[in-house]
Amino acid sequence: MELELILNTIARALAFSTPLLWAALGEIYTERSGVVNLGVEGMMIMGAVVGFMVGQATGLPYLALLVAALVGTLMGLAHAFISITLNANQFVSGLSLTIFGLGLSGLLGRSYVGQPLNVAMKSVTVPFLSEIPLLGPALFTDQKLLTYAGLIMAIILWFFLNYTRWGMTLRSVGESPKAADTAGIPVNQVRYLAVAFGGLMAGVAGAYLSLAYRPSWGEGMTNGMGWIALALTIFALWDPLRAIGASFLFGAFFYLSFTKLQTVIAPELLTMMPYIMTIVALTVIALGQGKRAFGAPEALGIPYQRGER
Protein backbone atom coordinates (compact mmCIF):
# COMPACT_ATOMS: atom_id res chain seq x y z
CA MET A 1 0.00 0.00 0.00
CA GLU A 2 2.79 2.41 0.86
CA LEU A 3 4.62 1.40 -2.28
CA GLU A 4 1.51 2.14 -4.27
CA LEU A 5 1.31 5.58 -2.67
CA ILE A 6 4.89 6.27 -3.69
CA LEU A 7 4.31 5.15 -7.27
CA ASN A 8 1.14 7.20 -7.56
CA THR A 9 2.93 10.19 -6.15
CA ILE A 10 5.62 9.86 -8.80
CA ALA A 11 3.05 9.62 -11.58
CA ARG A 12 0.97 12.56 -10.37
CA ALA A 13 3.98 14.73 -9.50
CA LEU A 14 5.11 14.38 -13.11
CA ALA A 15 1.72 15.37 -14.50
CA PHE A 16 1.11 18.25 -12.12
CA SER A 17 4.59 19.70 -12.41
CA THR A 18 4.73 19.69 -16.20
CA PRO A 19 3.61 23.33 -16.61
CA LEU A 20 5.87 24.36 -13.74
CA LEU A 21 8.80 22.67 -15.45
CA TRP A 22 8.16 24.28 -18.85
CA ALA A 23 7.76 27.74 -17.37
CA ALA A 24 10.73 27.34 -15.06
CA LEU A 25 12.97 26.15 -17.92
CA GLY A 26 12.06 29.26 -19.89
CA GLU A 27 12.71 31.49 -16.93
CA ILE A 28 16.05 29.79 -16.31
CA TYR A 29 17.20 30.76 -19.79
CA THR A 30 15.80 34.26 -19.39
CA GLU A 31 17.58 34.77 -16.09
CA ARG A 32 20.76 33.14 -17.30
CA SER A 33 20.93 35.93 -19.86
CA GLY A 34 20.65 38.43 -17.02
CA VAL A 35 16.99 39.46 -17.30
CA VAL A 36 14.27 38.75 -14.73
CA ASN A 37 10.79 38.18 -16.10
CA LEU A 38 8.06 38.60 -13.49
CA GLY A 39 5.49 38.31 -16.28
CA VAL A 40 5.51 34.50 -16.36
CA GLU A 41 2.04 34.25 -14.82
CA GLY A 42 0.60 36.65 -17.39
CA MET A 43 2.29 34.84 -20.28
CA MET A 44 1.08 31.48 -19.02
CA ILE A 45 -2.51 32.57 -18.79
CA MET A 46 -2.40 34.18 -22.23
CA GLY A 47 -1.04 30.91 -23.56
CA ALA A 48 -3.86 29.08 -21.82
CA VAL A 49 -6.65 31.23 -23.23
CA VAL A 50 -5.29 31.53 -26.75
CA GLY A 51 -4.49 27.82 -26.80
CA PHE A 52 -8.05 27.05 -25.83
CA MET A 53 -9.52 29.45 -28.39
CA VAL A 54 -7.48 28.04 -31.27
CA GLY A 55 -8.04 24.48 -30.09
CA GLN A 56 -11.78 25.03 -29.98
CA ALA A 57 -11.86 26.67 -33.40
CA THR A 58 -9.70 24.14 -35.22
CA GLY A 59 -9.92 20.93 -33.22
CA LEU A 60 -6.14 20.68 -33.54
CA PRO A 61 -4.62 20.84 -30.06
CA TYR A 62 -1.03 20.81 -31.29
CA LEU A 63 -1.67 23.72 -33.64
CA ALA A 64 -3.23 25.48 -30.66
CA LEU A 65 -0.09 24.76 -28.69
CA LEU A 66 1.98 26.36 -31.42
CA VAL A 67 -0.13 29.52 -31.43
CA ALA A 68 0.00 29.69 -27.64
CA ALA A 69 3.78 29.46 -27.84
CA LEU A 70 3.74 32.27 -30.38
CA VAL A 71 1.64 34.48 -28.12
CA GLY A 72 4.01 33.77 -25.25
CA THR A 73 6.90 34.71 -27.51
CA LEU A 74 5.24 37.98 -28.45
CA MET A 75 4.73 38.88 -24.81
CA GLY A 76 8.32 37.91 -24.15
CA LEU A 77 9.40 40.26 -26.92
CA ALA A 78 7.35 43.03 -25.34
CA HIS A 79 9.17 42.44 -22.07
CA ALA A 80 12.48 42.41 -23.90
CA PHE A 81 11.70 45.66 -25.68
CA ILE A 82 10.76 47.42 -22.45
CA SER A 83 13.52 46.07 -20.29
CA ILE A 84 16.35 45.94 -22.85
CA THR A 85 15.73 48.50 -25.58
CA LEU A 86 13.97 51.04 -23.39
CA ASN A 87 16.10 50.00 -20.46
CA ALA A 88 13.13 50.47 -18.16
CA ASN A 89 12.53 48.79 -14.82
CA GLN A 90 12.24 45.11 -15.69
CA PHE A 91 10.53 44.16 -12.44
CA VAL A 92 7.68 46.58 -13.01
CA SER A 93 7.54 45.58 -16.66
CA GLY A 94 7.05 41.94 -15.74
CA LEU A 95 4.50 42.72 -13.06
CA SER A 96 2.55 44.92 -15.48
CA LEU A 97 2.55 42.21 -18.11
CA THR A 98 1.16 39.81 -15.52
CA ILE A 99 -1.63 42.21 -14.57
CA PHE A 100 -2.28 42.95 -18.25
CA GLY A 101 -2.30 39.27 -19.22
CA LEU A 102 -4.65 38.26 -16.42
CA GLY A 103 -7.07 40.99 -17.52
CA LEU A 104 -6.85 40.44 -21.26
CA SER A 105 -7.16 36.66 -20.98
CA GLY A 106 -10.34 37.07 -18.94
CA LEU A 107 -11.70 39.43 -21.56
CA LEU A 108 -10.85 37.14 -24.48
CA GLY A 109 -12.15 34.05 -22.73
CA ARG A 110 -15.52 35.43 -21.66
CA SER A 111 -17.50 33.54 -24.27
CA TYR A 112 -15.58 30.29 -23.81
CA VAL A 113 -16.60 29.72 -20.23
CA GLY A 114 -18.56 26.57 -19.53
CA GLN A 115 -17.35 24.85 -22.68
CA PRO A 116 -15.31 21.68 -22.59
CA LEU A 117 -12.51 21.49 -25.15
CA ASN A 118 -13.74 19.43 -28.10
CA VAL A 119 -10.45 17.73 -28.87
CA ALA A 120 -8.07 17.55 -25.93
CA MET A 121 -4.48 16.32 -25.96
CA LYS A 122 -4.51 12.58 -25.48
CA SER A 123 -2.78 10.66 -22.76
CA VAL A 124 -0.11 8.29 -23.97
CA THR A 125 1.21 5.07 -22.58
CA VAL A 126 4.68 4.28 -23.82
CA PRO A 127 4.83 0.77 -25.29
CA PHE A 128 7.34 -1.63 -23.70
CA LEU A 129 8.57 0.92 -21.13
CA SER A 130 5.19 0.89 -19.42
CA GLU A 131 5.63 -2.79 -18.76
CA ILE A 132 8.65 -2.31 -16.54
CA PRO A 133 7.57 -3.42 -13.09
CA LEU A 134 6.82 -0.57 -10.67
CA LEU A 135 8.36 2.26 -12.69
CA GLY A 136 6.37 1.41 -15.80
CA PRO A 137 3.00 2.35 -14.36
CA ALA A 138 4.49 5.29 -12.47
CA LEU A 139 6.44 6.92 -15.27
CA PHE A 140 5.15 5.67 -18.57
CA THR A 141 1.41 5.14 -18.21
CA ASP A 142 -1.27 7.69 -19.03
CA GLN A 143 0.91 10.76 -19.22
CA LYS A 144 0.64 13.60 -21.68
CA LEU A 145 3.15 13.99 -24.47
CA LEU A 146 4.10 17.41 -23.11
CA THR A 147 5.21 15.79 -19.85
CA TYR A 148 7.82 13.73 -21.65
CA ALA A 149 8.65 16.61 -23.96
CA GLY A 150 9.31 18.75 -20.88
CA LEU A 151 11.76 16.23 -19.47
CA ILE A 152 13.55 15.87 -22.80
CA MET A 153 13.56 19.64 -23.20
CA ALA A 154 15.24 20.00 -19.82
CA ILE A 155 18.01 17.65 -20.82
CA ILE A 156 18.52 19.35 -24.17
CA LEU A 157 18.55 22.79 -22.58
CA TRP A 158 21.01 21.62 -19.96
CA PHE A 159 23.34 20.20 -22.59
CA PHE A 160 22.97 23.25 -24.78
CA LEU A 161 23.70 25.60 -21.89
CA ASN A 162 26.78 23.80 -20.61
CA TYR A 163 28.38 22.17 -23.60
CA THR A 164 27.80 24.33 -26.64
CA ARG A 165 29.25 27.57 -27.84
CA TRP A 166 25.81 29.16 -27.88
CA GLY A 167 25.24 28.12 -24.32
CA MET A 168 28.52 29.67 -23.29
CA THR A 169 27.54 32.85 -25.07
CA LEU A 170 24.29 32.97 -23.14
CA ARG A 171 26.00 32.38 -19.83
CA SER A 172 28.67 34.98 -20.47
CA VAL A 173 26.00 37.57 -21.24
CA GLY A 174 24.37 36.87 -17.91
CA GLU A 175 27.57 36.69 -15.92
CA SER A 176 29.63 39.47 -17.37
CA PRO A 177 27.99 41.40 -20.16
CA LYS A 178 30.89 43.81 -20.44
CA ALA A 179 33.40 41.08 -21.09
CA ALA A 180 30.99 39.44 -23.52
CA ASP A 181 30.59 42.72 -25.35
CA THR A 182 34.33 43.14 -25.57
CA ALA A 183 34.55 39.66 -27.02
CA GLY A 184 32.18 40.75 -29.76
CA ILE A 185 28.99 39.15 -28.48
CA PRO A 186 25.87 41.21 -29.21
CA VAL A 187 24.72 41.28 -25.60
CA ASN A 188 21.28 42.76 -26.09
CA GLN A 189 20.44 40.54 -29.06
CA VAL A 190 21.25 37.46 -27.03
CA ARG A 191 19.10 38.76 -24.20
CA TYR A 192 16.24 39.43 -26.60
CA LEU A 193 16.38 35.83 -27.76
CA ALA A 194 16.50 34.47 -24.23
CA VAL A 195 13.58 36.57 -23.01
CA ALA A 196 11.48 35.68 -26.05
CA PHE A 197 12.31 32.02 -25.48
CA GLY A 198 11.19 32.34 -21.85
CA GLY A 199 7.87 33.73 -23.09
CA LEU A 200 7.51 30.86 -25.54
CA MET A 201 8.00 28.31 -22.80
CA ALA A 202 5.50 30.07 -20.53
CA GLY A 203 2.99 30.04 -23.39
CA VAL A 204 3.45 26.28 -23.76
CA ALA A 205 3.07 25.84 -20.00
CA GLY A 206 -0.24 27.70 -20.06
CA ALA A 207 -1.48 25.76 -23.06
CA TYR A 208 -0.77 22.50 -21.24
CA LEU A 209 -3.25 23.59 -18.58
CA SER A 210 -6.11 24.41 -20.95
CA LEU A 211 -5.44 21.74 -23.59
CA ALA A 212 -4.28 18.75 -21.56
CA TYR A 213 -4.33 19.02 -17.78
CA ARG A 214 -7.83 20.41 -17.51
CA PRO A 215 -9.16 20.76 -21.07
CA SER A 216 -11.33 23.83 -20.58
CA TRP A 217 -10.99 27.55 -20.02
CA GLY A 218 -11.58 29.13 -16.63
CA GLU A 219 -10.68 32.65 -15.67
CA GLY A 220 -7.50 32.82 -13.60
CA MET A 221 -6.91 29.12 -14.19
CA THR A 222 -3.14 29.39 -13.77
CA ASN A 223 -3.91 30.30 -10.16
CA GLY A 224 -0.38 31.41 -9.22
CA MET A 225 1.55 28.70 -11.04
CA GLY A 226 3.68 31.33 -12.79
CA TRP A 227 4.92 32.56 -9.43
CA ILE A 228 5.74 29.04 -8.32
CA ALA A 229 7.71 28.60 -11.54
CA LEU A 230 9.70 31.72 -10.72
CA ALA A 231 10.46 30.35 -7.28
CA LEU A 232 11.48 27.00 -8.78
CA THR A 233 13.94 28.79 -11.06
CA ILE A 234 15.82 29.89 -7.97
CA PHE A 235 15.25 26.55 -6.24
CA ALA A 236 16.85 24.85 -9.26
CA LEU A 237 19.83 27.18 -8.94
CA TRP A 238 19.34 28.25 -12.57
CA ASP A 239 20.14 24.75 -13.83
CA PRO A 240 17.75 23.02 -16.28
CA LEU A 241 18.47 19.51 -14.97
CA ARG A 242 17.86 20.54 -11.39
CA ALA A 243 14.62 22.15 -12.55
CA ILE A 244 13.31 18.63 -13.13
CA GLY A 245 14.06 17.75 -9.53
CA ALA A 246 12.77 21.03 -8.12
CA SER A 247 9.44 20.96 -9.95
CA PHE A 248 9.04 17.24 -9.31
CA LEU A 249 9.60 17.70 -5.59
CA PHE A 250 7.11 20.52 -5.45
CA GLY A 251 4.59 18.45 -7.40
CA ALA A 252 5.11 15.44 -5.14
CA PHE A 253 4.37 17.43 -2.00
CA PHE A 254 1.41 19.10 -3.66
CA TYR A 255 -0.09 15.72 -4.53
CA LEU A 256 0.67 14.23 -1.12
CA SER A 257 -1.28 16.99 0.59
CA PHE A 258 -4.48 15.60 -0.98
CA THR A 259 -3.88 11.92 -0.32
CA LYS A 260 -4.99 9.87 2.64
CA LEU A 261 -2.30 11.66 4.64
CA GLN A 262 -5.14 14.10 5.31
CA THR A 263 -6.49 11.63 7.84
CA VAL A 264 -3.19 11.66 9.71
CA ILE A 265 -2.17 15.34 9.54
CA ALA A 266 -4.68 18.21 9.67
CA PRO A 267 -5.33 19.05 6.01
CA GLU A 268 -5.00 22.79 6.50
CA LEU A 269 -1.47 22.20 7.75
CA LEU A 270 -0.78 19.60 5.08
CA THR A 271 -1.62 22.05 2.29
CA MET A 272 1.30 24.23 3.46
CA MET A 273 3.68 21.38 2.90
CA PRO A 274 4.96 22.15 -0.61
CA TYR A 275 5.87 25.67 0.48
CA ILE A 276 7.50 24.64 3.75
CA MET A 277 9.42 21.84 2.07
CA THR A 278 10.79 24.26 -0.52
CA ILE A 279 12.31 26.39 2.23
CA VAL A 280 13.55 23.33 4.09
CA ALA A 281 15.14 21.89 0.96
CA LEU A 282 16.91 25.16 0.19
CA THR A 283 18.18 25.38 3.75
CA VAL A 284 19.49 21.83 3.63
CA ILE A 285 21.29 22.51 0.35
CA ALA A 286 22.78 25.64 1.85
CA LEU A 287 23.89 23.85 5.02
CA GLY A 288 25.54 21.19 2.90
CA GLN A 289 27.30 23.39 0.41
CA GLY A 290 27.63 26.78 2.00
CA LYS A 291 26.93 30.10 0.39
CA ARG A 292 28.63 29.16 -2.83
CA ALA A 293 25.69 26.93 -3.65
CA PHE A 294 23.59 29.86 -4.74
CA GLY A 295 25.38 31.34 -7.68
CA ALA A 296 22.83 33.54 -9.32
CA PRO A 297 23.94 34.94 -12.68
CA GLU A 298 26.25 37.78 -11.77
CA ALA A 299 24.45 40.40 -13.87
CA LEU A 300 20.90 39.22 -13.08
CA GLY A 301 18.46 42.09 -13.20
CA ILE A 302 21.07 44.62 -14.26
CA PRO A 303 20.52 46.20 -17.67
CA TYR A 304 23.51 46.44 -19.92
CA GLN A 305 24.34 49.75 -21.48
CA ARG A 306 27.36 49.97 -23.66
CA GLY A 307 29.75 52.64 -22.52
CA GLU A 308 28.47 52.83 -18.99
CA ARG A 309 30.80 52.51 -16.00
Binding site: N87, A88, L107
Partner: peptide, 22 residues
Protein backbone atom coordinates in the same frame (compact mmCIF):
# COMPACT_ATOMS: atom_id res chain seq x y z
CA UNK B 1 -17.11 47.91 -18.34
CA UNK B 2 -16.25 44.25 -17.83
CA UNK B 3 -14.29 43.53 -14.71
CA UNK B 4 -11.26 42.29 -16.64
CA UNK B 5 -10.88 45.70 -18.29
CA UNK B 6 -9.50 47.02 -15.02
CA UNK B 7 -6.54 44.66 -15.28
CA UNK B 8 -5.89 45.57 -18.89
CA UNK B 9 -5.93 49.30 -18.12
CA UNK B 10 -3.82 48.96 -14.96
CA UNK B 11 -1.24 46.98 -16.91
CA UNK B 12 -1.13 49.59 -19.67
CA UNK B 13 -0.79 52.41 -17.18
CA UNK B 14 2.16 50.80 -15.44
CA UNK B 15 3.85 50.06 -18.75
CA UNK B 16 3.47 53.70 -19.79
CA UNK B 17 4.94 54.90 -16.52
CA UNK B 18 8.04 52.78 -16.81
CA UNK B 19 8.54 53.42 -20.50
CA UNK B 20 9.52 57.01 -19.72
CA UNK B 21 12.58 55.74 -17.94
CA UNK B 22 14.93 56.17 -20.91
Amino acid sequence: LPDQMTGVINGLLLLCIICIEP
